[in-house]
Simulated assay, not measured.
Amino acid sequence: MANELVVIEKSTALEVFKSSDSVEDIIRKVEQEVNSFIPDVTTVKGRKEIASLAYKVAQSKTYLDGLGKDLAAELKEIPKLIDANRKTVRDRLDTLRDKVRQPLTEWEAEQERIEAEKQMLAWHEEALEMNIAFDKALAERIESDHEIALLMNEKFDRDLAEAKAEAERQRIAHEEELKKQAVEQARLEAEQKAQQEIEAAAQREREAKEVAERAEREKQEAIQRAAQEAKEAQERAEREKQAAIEAERRKAHEAEQARLAEEEERKRKEYAKRQEDKEHRRKYNQETLQALVSNGFDEKLATEFIKLVASNQVPHMTMNY
């Protein structure tokens, strides 16, 4: 038999406690019950009835207060349930979104990898073309410089031969002239003049020799200059070629480093997501375990039960993560 003076259906408890008038109605019912009671302390039965009514009032207070307390506790849990369900919606739909988009994400990653390989191949082909162009230009420059040096050498040889031939012609002509003069003039005058002319011829021969030597020196200097310029041009072209190759290598290296960094970031995010999911499951498993234990389950058996449900080994039961 119930000891409460009033009873409220649990389904209507919220409406009752939300209204001051409803609470007043309940209290008035208790007051009416108490006010209609006529106490009799002269008999044992009367005293028991007084004690019983007081007990019922106290029980009614405990009942109503407990009902309100349970209702308040349930209402406090509602935001937590809402937040938990919101998180479930977010996580589950995020997973579905990622699952749906995964083929596109993988395709996009593959396209980026293909584009990166195409770019690296294009840079490599460009570097090869530049190498070919440098080598061709260098070969043409060396060949041109060599031809110029040969032409200059031939010119110097011709000039030297002509200078020698002219000196010889002059010497022969002068000797013929001396012979003519010697016949016409007296022996002493002829000898003196011949001596003077011979000295002059020797001087001219020395001058011609100096001209030839100077021409030879200039020829050798020109050849050396041409060779030095060709060497410098070759070295300069090689330096430029190596600089271009190094620049392309740097580009390829930087592209590869960027690709590796993106790949590392993707792996880091995947790992972080797995860790977050692992922690999320661990938390939910722990909360489930605590709920089972608090309801009388053995902790070890409850743990094994959770493992079976989580691994889908119990028909018709799943873990709602």
Rank of each mutant, 00 (worst) to 15 (best):
E106C: 00
R268L: 07
L93D: 04
V100L: 08
R268M: 07
E235Q: 14
F37R: 07
Q224G: 08
I78H: 05
S60F: 02
K80Y: 02
R214N: 13
H253Y: 08
A127R: 08
E210L: 09
A122N: 06
V23S: 06
L151V: 13
A215K: 15
K29H: 11
E240S: 07
A244E: 02
I223N: 03
E125W: 02
T12Q: 14
R250N: 10
E216R: 14
R236I: 00
V30H: 09
T288R: 15
A84Q: 08
A252K: 10
T288G: 11
I198C: 00
E197A: 15
H280W: 02
A226F: 05
Q228R: 07
P79M: 02
K179R: 13
D94W: 01
L178V: 13
M1V: 14
R268Y: 07
E210D: 07
E147L: 13
P103T: 05
S22C: 09
A302S: 10
M319I: 11
Q313S: 11
P39C: 03
N131W: 04
L138C: 10
A237I: 06
A190E: 04
A54W: 01
N85W: 02
E197P: 04
R171Y: 05
Q257I: 10
E140A: 15
M319R: 08
A230V: 04
L121W: 10
H253G: 03
V44Q: 09
A84I: 05
